[in-house]
Design a protein around this nucleic acid. Sequence first.
DNA 1: ATAATAAAAGAGTTTCTTATCTTTATTTAA
DNA 2: TTAAATAAAGATAAGAAACTCTTTTATTAT
Lengths: 145, 145
Amino acid sequence: MGIFSKTCEYALRAVFFVAHKTAGGGRVGIKEIAEGIGSPEHFLAKVLQDLSRRGIVQSVKGPNGGFYTDESVLQRPISDVVEAVDGNGIFTGCALGLKQCSEINPCPLHHEFKTIRNELHRMLNATSIGEFNTDLISGITALKK
Amino acid sequence: MGIFSKTCEYALRAVFFVAHKTAGGGRVGIKEIAEGIGSPEHFLAKVLQDLSRRGIVQSVKGPNGGFYTDESVLQRPISDVVEAVDGNGIFTGCALGLKQCSEINPCPLHHEFKTIRNELHRMLNATSIGEFNTDLISGITALKK
DNA sequence: ATAATAAAAGAGTTTCTTATCTTTATTTAA
DNA sequence: TTAAATAAAGATAAGAAACTCTTTTATTAT
Ligand code: FES
Ligand code: FES
């Protein structure tokens, strides 16, 4: 596995997909999202339900319904998505799995690891959901394959 | 979960434990290692068997047997341990789980993520198994709790 | 040789993650 | 007010990761 869980990878790709598809208004259905990011449809549905409950995407049922992101969502940091799915262990946990990462009872890797972990956290915090829309629309970046 | 799998966390803690216990000669048994790092004994046995096959620890059976690390092991980078257990996905994989992390078909996070991923790789490559022995012996760093 | 010791190997079980399929609730439009 | 569309929810299953228990093999010391 990579740095995030598979579920979290789907979540991030889906959020980016919804964001760039609906930035100009409208909604996008679960089928199109799953197809657009290459994920199992019903599994992704569960993930999006969860993100919807947490306010990271919006949704409406019925004809012309689907998922979308409003302006406030576009400005949220992507660390919100990661934290919603994988929790904050990746931002605060010990590299070696000690119950508590601490300065006073550190593991051997603590000092070096903390730097990198903080850098990752800073990066995900400084990066907003909406800031990739133009590159996605222009096709410079991809969410599939 | 943290950045590494639980199995990998055990592996790293165990390797550090064996290294600092046997740096001056001798062997240490699976029971003492499991107790020393707070891991399930039989599960850890499997992990160490695997590391042993790959030459990351040494072992001998029978009375006065156990696990140990020779001088050459102490100088290996800890990325070898991570790679043996978790594979190299963490060093080379796409943050969003695209099949192939690439410059020509990058995901939105590619540029920022690559930097951090490379920094992690560099750190784990520049850090040797044996370099924590003195801090572990003196009790400055810990492998349990 | 024999008995004791300790890792290696084998064979599960449990739990968590990922995935699939079906049914229900909500919304829209005719 | 009915039918169609679409997300939400429920139930179940497949696979992988984590953990446990038992048997075998290799080594040492007596
Ligand atoms: S104690 Fe291990 S990373 Fe902080
Ligand atoms: S393509 Fe996603 S990190 Fe490189």
